[in-house]
Design a protein around this nucleic acid. Sequence first.
DNA 1: AATGAATGAGTATTCATTCAT
DNA 2: AATGAATGAATACTCATTCAT
Lengths: 203, 203, 203, 203
Amino acid sequence: MRESRVVAPGAKTPASLEKYNRIIAAGTALFAEKGFHGTTVPEVARKAKVGSGTIYLYFANKEDLVNGVFQSCKSKLSSYLARGVSYDDNADLRESFRTVWQNLCEFAVQNPQEFSFLELHEHSKYLNRESRLLEISVLAPFRLFICKGKRAGIIKDMPAIMLIAMVWGLFVGLFKADVHGYTNITDAALQSAERLCWQMIAR
Amino acid sequence: MRESRVVAPGAKTPASLEKYNRIIAAGTALFAEKGFHGTTVPEVARKAKVGSGTIYLYFANKEDLVNGVFQSCKSKLSSYLARGVSYDDNADLRESFRTVWQNLCEFAVQNPQEFSFLELHEHSKYLNRESRLLEISVLAPFRLFICKGKRAGIIKDMPAIMLIAMVWGLFVGLFKADVHGYTNITDAALQSAERLCWQMIAR
Amino acid sequence: MRESRVVAPGAKTPASLEKYNRIIAAGTALFAEKGFHGTTVPEVARKAKVGSGTIYLYFANKEDLVNGVFQSCKSKLSSYLARGVSYDDNADLRESFRTVWQNLCEFAVQNPQEFSFLELHEHSKYLNRESRLLEISVLAPFRLFICKGKRAGIIKDMPAIMLIAMVWGLFVGLFKADVHGYTNITDAALQSAERLCWQMIAR
Amino acid sequence: MRESRVVAPGAKTPASLEKYNRIIAAGTALFAEKGFHGTTVPEVARKAKVGSGTIYLYFANKEDLVNGVFQSCKSKLSSYLARGVSYDDNADLRESFRTVWQNLCEFAVQNPQEFSFLELHEHSKYLNRESRLLEISVLAPFRLFICKGKRAGIIKDMPAIMLIAMVWGLFVGLFKADVHGYTNITDAALQSAERLCWQMIAR
DNA sequence: AATGAATGAGTATTCATTCAT
DNA sequence: AATGAATGAATACTCATTCAT
């Protein structure tokens, strides 16, 4: 068994980087759709248009592959969330919340597979240390935001983690309802939801 | 392969009903923990203290078993949600909401495996018609509640499904944060969350 | 991976014992012919007329299987060597040597696959503690024999292990020459060889 | 697949000859240690410090490689055995035997991997005609020696092949006992063994 | 009805070999 | 000539399902 996944094969040829990306994309789609155990490695290979052996040039094993997919998705989420958010102390919190919400919407709409994958149960079974750390680091800006808001007396005095969990869960609920076909969430609906959320967490 | 699952083997001896229940319980615990594909039938049999062949006396196959588990969990959820809820037109909506929330909390706390199982992704892959119908029927009282509230001008004028999805998602988010160890949700916290929820959906 | 090989499945039904024996016999033949790495598990299963999964009911894995084969072969060898050998102090050493040689010949002729298998290189890679102990225990009677002979001044004063290695190697050389078709070793030839051996080790 | 192995790529550049030799040396070491099926081609390449593709410039396939290794080892053995042996009719047979034995010892001590490799079972599965012929040709001087001795009434009247098999087997037995750590064979011990051997085959 | 030994199709992973560079 | 990334056929092992008891 190879020691560890090639985290940044970018140093290699562009061809190999492209192959790596295809594997991650295929893995994301399939893991999101069928879960870790429901997805076979040759299936990922087929979708990525590479030989199944090739996957093992980039990842030590299936678990390492799913960690690669996880880290790729979390990084992408992270980069969406960071867009246009000011860390300035004078920043308008109401406006910041709107921006973060908007970023989240864009991430979920433009990357539905990544979003679904990240919401999978069962992650805990195979995530490695690196993935776990990444998971925590993505939460950090949210905590900061909430704390600032609480200090400013704008946001309700509840544990930051709880507020985050509630807003995040609410968003996931909306998204799932859309995906499962229970309703069709429009942009306008998402904006309404944003307003409701703010009312909920704001004093 | 047998034609169809024995839905109600209760007609048989009490001994067989007890065995059936043990299988459902074992399946719930294992599917919740490891997912459908991550759980093996002999494993379920071992936990249920029956022979693996015995499972096939009660269920046509693994998929049928997971549907049995699903229906059992949804029914249990349903029965919790129905507790103490008045369908009277004069019922106090604020009070009703509190009751439903309380019921949900009790279900999740007293049946964490059932709750986790119901939140699994991947359900869509194996749920049969019966399970899907059950899923929808559980939502019905919620819809009714929302519609009544909207008619009475007490609840915000948004699609019922969206409001339900948001509240349900919010609750799931809280519960997951607790299970994943991010925070420890107390009874008081759950009550605060309930108040926030109501503020959110009420005009 | 199962914990450990079922050493004596004799406690089970006669049917399972018979299956176990067929697997050991098939393994002996194939490992002897093609070595450990050159033999596939399904191949063993096919020769034993069982499903490949069945092998894993009796052995934890391929390595455990080859240890089972090893122990079976060594035990058989041991039982041949013990035949008609007196541990009496007054026993005639010349006669004893003849008997041991004869036993060895019978073992090799009646169990050519077992004999070949035991002479494989590569054993060291996969033998477990139990197998190693067995290996040593088979040598014990030889050591005793040599030591008695040396004390009686009948056998040359050389390290017992060396004398054993020489006689054993000589016998293996003869047997291999026969198997590889270089010559056809008759009973008479084996008796001559025995006489030469005795001359070699006797004072 | 290429038609046949490049037997003597020495005609090519010295650089290529050196590479060829490194491959043979690596193959000898690995095949001796782990057998044919237990050794991978990329492993041989790595040890030889060449690319795995390079091996296929010198050998048509893995089987061809192992034949190359076999022939190299047998040739080396042959050259050791030929040292200082007179084919003169008046040569002293006792002295010749001592010389051959000494040569064999030197070969085994100085080339333990080659010696081990030659003693592998499983050769029969992949040796080609050329290798087989070489195997027989190495025996020729021995046969001659024995025949001369028998004609001169110095060596016992037994089939030459049998005597060779016995002496060779005896020597292999000693060497294996040393390698497997059962005993430590000294030079003196080897000389004693030589004397015993001579007593055995001489009238 | 209940069991669990037996099966073989299916899965993760390896490795001989090829071929673009 | 030399390389090593890429391939996919092959292999150890698992597990849903059956069936003799």
